[in-house]
Structure formats: structure tokens, C-alpha cells
Amino acid sequence: MDVFMKGLSKAKEGVVAAAEKTKQGVAEAAGKTKEGVLYVGSKTKEGVVHGVATVAEKTKEQVTNVGGAVVTGVTAVAQKTVEGAGSIAAATGFVKKDQLGKNEEGAPQEGILEDMPVDPDNEAYEMPSEEGYQDYEPEA
């Protein structure tokens, strides 16, 4: 019985440690998101679009440190934060509304985080759909 109880105690310690790591990862992701939003706020009209992409990228980098179902929630929060940063930029006159959601080359930025393969159960990952990809044929 002692062996059984000791095993359960060790398992509990492992769960607590994993929860603490997840909590730490979420806190880091939130900190990076805040950094990115402050970065966007300090940019001029020309830099705002690039700044919004930076927020998304920093958040995406930190999301990889967070495991399990938390990833889905962090990704949703990050996307809403990026959308909010863009709205703030438009409201303050840093950028025109028609410039939001495009990178410096004018290509749409939507789907940055949505296409990231995420499995809350950590069982399997699927690649994003290939609808947006084109076949590449090298020139002879």
C-alpha cells in the first residue's frame, strides 16, 4: 500500500510541476504579447503594419512553449490582441483601416495563427491545408 501511495504522490508532483510550467509559459506569452502591443503603439504610420505582424510573430513563438489545451486559448487571445492593436492603430490615425491585415508588401496577414497546427491532446499534428499553395516548377 505504501508503494501505491508513494507512486500516487510522485504522479501528483509531476502534474503540479507540469501545471506550473504551463502557467509560466502562458505568463511569458502574455508578456511578449504586451511587449508587441507597446511596440505597435510606438510606431509611426509606416511601421504600424509591420508592428502588428511582430506582435503576432512574438506571440506565436511563445505559444510553442505552452502545451496542451492552453495553446488553443493563448492563440485565440493573441489573435484578438493583434486585431485590437490594429483597431487602436486605425482609431489613433497611425494607419488607414484599409491597410490593416496586410503586410508591407500588401499581402493579407489573416491566418497567421489560424494555420498553425495545434492539437490540445498532444496526440497528432496535421499540416495546414494546401489550398493556398501553388506547385513550383523550376525553369529549365
Rank of each mutant, 00 (worst) to 15 (best):
residue 2 D to V: 00
residue 2 D to I: 01
residue 2 D to P: 01
residue 2 D to C: 03
residue 2 D to W: 02
residue 3 V to W: 02
residue 3 V to E: 01
residue 3 V to L: 08
residue 3 V to R: 15
residue 3 V to N: 04
residue 5 M to E: 01
residue 5 M to A: 07
residue 6 K to E: 08
residue 6 K to H: 06
residue 6 K to G: 02
residue 6 K to N: 03
residue 7 G to H: 03
residue 8 L to P: 01
residue 8 L to I: 04
residue 8 L to W: 07
residue 8 L to G: 00
residue 8 L to C: 03
residue 9 S to L: 07
residue 9 S to F: 10
residue 9 S to K: 10
residue 9 S to Q: 03
residue 10 K to Y: 02
residue 10 K to V: 14
residue 10 K to E: 02
residue 10 K to W: 09
residue 10 K to S: 09
residue 10 K to N: 12
residue 11 A to I: 02
residue 11 A to F: 14
residue 11 A to V: 13
residue 11 A to Y: 08
residue 12 K to G: 03
residue 12 K to M: 09
residue 12 K to R: 15
residue 12 K to H: 09
residue 13 E to D: 01
residue 13 E to S: 01
residue 13 E to Q: 07
residue 13 E to I: 05
residue 14 G to W: 06
residue 14 G to Y: 09
residue 14 G to F: 03
residue 15 V to K: 00
residue 15 V to S: 00
residue 15 V to G: 00
residue 16 V to Q: 11
residue 16 V to W: 07
residue 17 A to D: 00
residue 18 A to E: 00
residue 19 A to C: 12
residue 19 A to L: 15
residue 19 A to Y: 15
residue 20 E to T: 13
residue 21 K to V: 14
residue 21 K to L: 13
residue 22 T to L: 04
residue 22 T to A: 15
residue 23 K to P: 00
residue 23 K to E: 00
residue 23 K to Y: 09
residue 23 K to T: 05
residue 23 K to I: 07
residue 24 Q to L: 04
residue 25 G to M: 11
residue 26 V to W: 11
residue 26 V to T: 01
residue 26 V to R: 00
residue 26 V to N: 00
residue 26 V to Q: 00
residue 28 E to N: 04
residue 28 E to S: 15
residue 28 E to C: 05
residue 28 E to Y: 04
residue 30 A to Y: 10
residue 30 A to P: 00
residue 30 A to K: 02
residue 31 G to Y: 05
residue 31 G to H: 01
residue 31 G to T: 15
residue 31 G to E: 04
residue 32 K to P: 00
residue 32 K to L: 13
residue 32 K to W: 07
residue 33 T to L: 11
residue 33 T to R: 02
residue 33 T to I: 15
residue 34 K to C: 14
residue 34 K to F: 07
residue 34 K to S: 01
residue 35 E to S: 09
residue 35 E to Q: 01
residue 35 E to F: 08
residue 35 E to V: 07
residue 36 G to D: 02
residue 36 G to I: 11
residue 36 G to C: 09
residue 37 V to G: 01
residue 37 V to S: 01
residue 37 V to P: 00
residue 38 L to N: 07
residue 39 Y to C: 06
residue 39 Y to F: 11
residue 39 Y to H: 05
residue 39 Y to V: 07
residue 39 Y to R: 02
residue 40 V to L: 08
residue 40 V to G: 00
residue 40 V to N: 00
residue 40 V to F: 04
residue 40 V to S: 00
residue 40 V to A: 13
residue 41 G to H: 09
residue 42 S to N: 02
residue 42 S to A: 10
residue 42 S to F: 06
residue 43 K to W: 08
residue 43 K to V: 14
residue 44 T to F: 12
residue 44 T to C: 15
residue 44 T to G: 08
residue 44 T to Q: 01
residue 44 T to K: 02
residue 45 K to Y: 03
residue 45 K to V: 13
residue 46 E to H: 15
residue 46 E to V: 13
residue 47 G to Y: 06
residue 47 G to S: 11
residue 47 G to L: 10
residue 47 G to K: 12
residue 47 G to Q: 13
residue 48 V to G: 02
residue 48 V to Y: 09
residue 48 V to C: 07
residue 48 V to K: 01
residue 49 V to P: 07
residue 49 V to H: 09
residue 49 V to T: 15
residue 50 H to R: 05
residue 50 H to A: 15
residue 50 H to E: 14
residue 50 H to Q: 15
residue 50 H to K: 09
residue 51 G to A: 15
residue 51 G to N: 04
residue 52 V to I: 12
residue 53 A to H: 05
residue 54 T to M: 05
residue 55 V to H: 01
residue 55 V to T: 06
residue 55 V to W: 13
residue 55 V to G: 02
residue 55 V to I: 01
residue 56 A to R: 14
residue 56 A to W: 12
residue 56 A to S: 01
residue 58 K to A: 03
residue 59 T to M: 09
residue 59 T to Y: 02
residue 60 K to E: 04
residue 60 K to F: 15
residue 60 K to N: 06
residue 61 E to G: 09
residue 61 E to K: 14
residue 61 E to V: 07
residue 61 E to N: 09
residue 61 E to W: 14
residue 62 Q to K: 04
residue 62 Q to E: 04
residue 62 Q to T: 14
residue 63 V to W: 13
residue 63 V to A: 09
residue 63 V to D: 01
residue 63 V to I: 13
residue 64 T to I: 09
residue 64 T to S: 15
residue 64 T to M: 03
residue 65 N to V: 06
residue 65 N to R: 08
residue 66 V to A: 11
residue 66 V to I: 08
residue 67 G to Q: 13
residue 67 G to M: 12
residue 67 G to H: 09
residue 67 G to C: 03
residue 67 G to T: 11
residue 68 G to C: 04
residue 69 A to W: 07
residue 69 A to R: 15
residue 69 A to G: 12
residue 69 A to P: 05
residue 69 A to Q: 04
residue 70 V to T: 03
residue 70 V to N: 02
residue 70 V to A: 05
residue 71 V to Y: 15
residue 71 V to K: 09
residue 72 T to I: 14
residue 72 T to K: 10
residue 72 T to Q: 14
residue 73 G to E: 10
residue 73 G to N: 13
residue 74 V to H: 02
residue 75 T to M: 14
residue 75 T to C: 12
residue 76 A to Y: 15
residue 76 A to N: 07
residue 76 A to W: 05
residue 77 V to R: 02
residue 77 V to C: 05
residue 77 V to Y: 06
residue 78 A to Y: 12
residue 78 A to D: 04
residue 79 Q to M: 09
residue 79 Q to P: 03
residue 80 K to T: 11
residue 80 K to M: 14
residue 81 T to E: 06
residue 82 V to D: 06
residue 83 E to F: 11
residue 83 E to H: 02
residue 83 E to L: 04
residue 83 E to K: 15
residue 84 G to F: 04
residue 84 G to K: 08
residue 85 A to P: 07
residue 85 A to C: 10
residue 86 G to K: 03
residue 86 G to I: 05
residue 86 G to C: 14
residue 86 G to H: 15
residue 87 S to D: 12
residue 87 S to P: 14
residue 88 I to Q: 07
residue 89 A to C: 03
residue 91 A to N: 14
residue 91 A to C: 12
residue 91 A to S: 08
residue 91 A to W: 09
residue 91 A to D: 06
residue 92 T to A: 03
residue 92 T to Y: 04
residue 92 T to E: 06
residue 92 T to R: 08
residue 94 F to W: 15
residue 95 V to Q: 01
residue 95 V to Y: 13
residue 95 V to D: 07
residue 96 K to N: 15
residue 96 K to D: 06
residue 96 K to A: 10
residue 96 K to W: 12
residue 96 K to L: 11
residue 97 K to E: 08
residue 97 K to C: 11
residue 97 K to V: 15
residue 97 K to Y: 01
residue 98 D to N: 06
residue 98 D to I: 07
residue 99 Q to F: 12
residue 99 Q to A: 09
residue 99 Q to M: 14
residue 99 Q to R: 06
residue 100 L to R: 10
residue 100 L to H: 02
residue 102 K to G: 04
residue 102 K to A: 11
residue 102 K to F: 00
residue 103 N to D: 06
residue 103 N to M: 13
residue 103 N to H: 08
residue 104 E to W: 12
residue 104 E to M: 15
residue 104 E to Q: 13
residue 105 E to T: 07
residue 105 E to I: 01
residue 105 E to D: 09
residue 106 G to F: 12
residue 106 G to N: 10
residue 107 A to G: 13
residue 107 A to T: 12
residue 108 P to G: 02
residue 109 Q to G: 01
residue 109 Q to L: 03
residue 109 Q to T: 13
residue 110 E to N: 12
residue 110 E to R: 05
residue 110 E to A: 15
residue 111 G to N: 15
residue 112 I to D: 09
residue 113 L to K: 13
residue 114 E to T: 15
residue 114 E to C: 15
residue 115 D to P: 03
residue 115 D to I: 05
residue 115 D to R: 11
residue 115 D to F: 11
residue 115 D to W: 11
residue 116 M to D: 01
residue 116 M to T: 13
residue 117 P to Y: 03
residue 117 P to M: 12
residue 117 P to S: 05
residue 118 V to S: 08
residue 118 V to K: 10
residue 119 D to S: 10
residue 119 D to Q: 10
residue 119 D to Y: 08
residue 119 D to T: 04
residue 120 P to T: 07
residue 120 P to M: 10
residue 120 P to Q: 10
residue 120 P to V: 03
residue 120 P to F: 07
residue 121 D to N: 04
residue 121 D to I: 10
residue 121 D to P: 07
residue 122 N to K: 13
residue 123 E to S: 03
residue 123 E to T: 13
residue 124 A to R: 13
residue 124 A to K: 12
residue 125 Y to E: 04
residue 125 Y to C: 05
residue 125 Y to H: 06
residue 126 E to R: 12
residue 126 E to I: 15
residue 127 M to K: 12
residue 127 M to A: 08
residue 128 P to Y: 03
residue 128 P to R: 11
residue 128 P to F: 10
residue 128 P to H: 07
residue 128 P to M: 11
residue 128 P to N: 10
residue 129 S to R: 03
residue 129 S to I: 08
residue 129 S to W: 05
residue 130 E to W: 08
residue 130 E to Y: 12
residue 131 E to C: 08
residue 131 E to F: 07
residue 131 E to H: 11
residue 132 G to M: 10
residue 132 G to N: 11
residue 133 Y to T: 13
residue 133 Y to C: 15
residue 133 Y to D: 02
residue 134 Q to C: 12
residue 134 Q to G: 06
residue 134 Q to N: 12
residue 134 Q to M: 02
residue 135 D to S: 07
residue 136 Y to V: 10
residue 136 Y to Q: 05
residue 136 Y to A: 14
residue 137 E to C: 10
residue 137 E to S: 09
residue 137 E to W: 03
residue 138 P to Y: 07
residue 138 P to S: 06
residue 138 P to G: 07
residue 139 E to Q: 08
residue 140 A to P: 15
residue 140 A to S: 10
residue 140 A to Y: 00
